[in-house]
């Protein structure tokens, strides 16, 4: 039984990581509009923090395989697991899609700040500050689009995903 669960975990983590990569690529033509945040929130609520973290690590690694190794690698190994942990911890407190929409908006607004902190580790504080202020418009777009996407899609997607995952895990 334990062995079967582990195989199912690996399959789930692989499929869901792939869906994150596909989701990111599908919207990559619109700067800072993405569904990765929504998917991470939904996956974490259905699977918990531990599996969510594994999905985040596989997703970040896949991004490196696609785009190559650069400074953002460190950011990706930090920021997506951070979202998973925050979602997992707040999941018991948030009762509606509005709460998750606000969480996604804050995450989007702060994304550039975390990226700037990451850049300043490599290139210094002055560079990090310029990086952050010059990207504020993109952060605004990221925050607002995250809010709208999660507000509209969280409920139906969460219902669908949690149902599919439950039935998959229950199968013998």
């Amino acid at each position: 039984m334990v062995g079967k669960m582990k195989v199912k975990d690996i399959v789930l983590i692989g499929i869901l990581s792939a869906s994150l990569t596909a989701g990111k690529l599908a919207l990559s033509f619109i700067p800072n509009v993405e569904i990765v945040t929504l998917l991470f929130i939904v996956f974490t609520l259905s699977l918990g923090i531990r599996r969510g973290l594994l999905i985040a690590i596989v997703f970040a690694t896949t991004e490196i395989l696609i785009y190559g190794f650069s400074t953002w690698v460190l950011l990706y190994y930090f920021i997506w697991p951070l979202l998973v942990v925050i979602t997992g911890l707040l999941g018991k407190l948030i009762k509606s899609e509005y709460g998750y929409a606000i969480l996604a908006a804050i995450f989007g607004l702060c994304f550039g700040l975390f990226a700037a902190i990451n850049e300043s580790i490599f290139y210094g504080l002055a560079y990090g500050l310029v990086y952050w202020t010059k990207g504020l418009v993109f952060d605004l777009v990221h925050g607002v689009s995250n809010f709208i996407i999660v507000l509209l899609l969280f409920k139906p997607l969460n219902k669908f995903i949690s149902k599919q995952i439950s039935s998959f895990l229950m199968e013998q």
Partner: peptide, 10 residues
């Protein structure tokens, strides 16, 4: 209600 929220955020 959601549309009102979205308009407010925009």
């Amino acid at each position: 209600k959601k549309i009102i929220w979205i308009v407010a955020v925009l």
